[in-house]
């Protein structure tokens, strides 16, 4: 569904992403992990069309993504790390606006809003202004805004930052539902337990390069001979630290 080929992006002399390639299939959630500054957000930004790659290409359903108004962008939904919502507006007005950006109008828009709000369990707060929402509710609405136009691919950039366990679990349930519906999900996070629970595959990126691309079990088996203690398999955090090192990042 989503194919990334040899993406490269530099900012001046800093190479943020260097020859990154991976695939996300339909019905699959791929966890994109990496330390701070590894190039995760830059990669997601290039896939979403927010940044133009210096080199490489993004293929959606086999077609190369090109230009601001490429219809293929309609097949991608973005859930940014920021709570990208208008606090002054109601949840419905926020979604009406974001839906209209994808040419949704009238009944189709109302149905899309209803479905998205139902999925994130916020239907009863649809007429309330976003500024009255809790952090967890805003996170769920942020997810709903990315789903309105029923994209085949969903890019989730740290979608659970700063939310309580209840809201986080609710978001996990939403993502598993989407996976069952055949959506291709790319999920960046710093929380290893989230990736362990949700991801079908993990892509580890560091210093702008892909250092591992495997299932959780496959990654664990890579470091097992060293880290396996007393018959207990190394967890994902141990694997991550082994792959990316323990030095602090800016």
């Amino acid at each position: 569904m989503l194919e990334i080929k040899h993406l490269r992006k530099s900012f001046g002399s800093l190479v943020a992403v260097d020859d990154v390639s991976f695939v996300v299939n339909a019905g699959q959630l791929v966890g994109l992990l990496g330390p701070n500054g590894a190039g995760k957000t830059t990669t997601v930004s290039m896939i979403a069309g927010l940044l133009t790659p210096d080199h490489g290409e993004v293929l959606v359903g086999g077609q190369r993504l090109a230009g601001d108004t490429d219809p293929a962008k309609r097949r991608i939904g973005l859930v940014p790390q920021d709570l990208a919502l208008y606090d002054e507006l109601t949840a419905r007005d926020n979604l009406r606006f974001f839906g209209a950006l994808y040419n949704l109008t009238g009944r189709a828009l109302d149905e899309a809003i209803g479905a998205a709000m139902h999925l994130v369990e916020l239907s009863d707060r649809i007429k309330d202004r976003v500024k009255t929402f809790s952090g967890g509710m805003k996170r769920r609405l942020n997810l709903a805004a990315g789903l309105l136009h029923d994209p085949d691919i969903l890019l989730l950039d740290e979608p659970t930052v700063g939310v309580d366990p209840q809201s986080r679990n609710a978001i996990f349930d939403n993502l598993e539902t989407l996976k069952r519906r055949g959506k291709a999900l790319l999920y960046t996070t710093h929380y290893m337990e989230e990736a362990e629970r949700l991801a079908d595959r993990i892509v580890v990126i560091d210093h702008g390069k892909v250092v591992a691309d495997d299932t959780v079990a496959g990654l664990q088996s890579r470091v097992a001979p060293v880290e396996d203690i007393g018959g207990v398999r190394a967890n994902l955090e141990t694997v991550f630290l082994t792959l990316t090192g323990r030095s602090l990042r800016d």
């Binding site: 930004s45 979403a48 920021d82 990208a84 950006l101």
Partner: peptide
């Protein structure tokens, strides 16, 4: 700053 332009720019809307 609030990330709203990420949403706007990710949509298939011309500059």
């Amino acid at each position: 700053q609030r990330g709203l332009w990420k949403r706007l720019r990710s949509a298939p809307v011309s500059r």
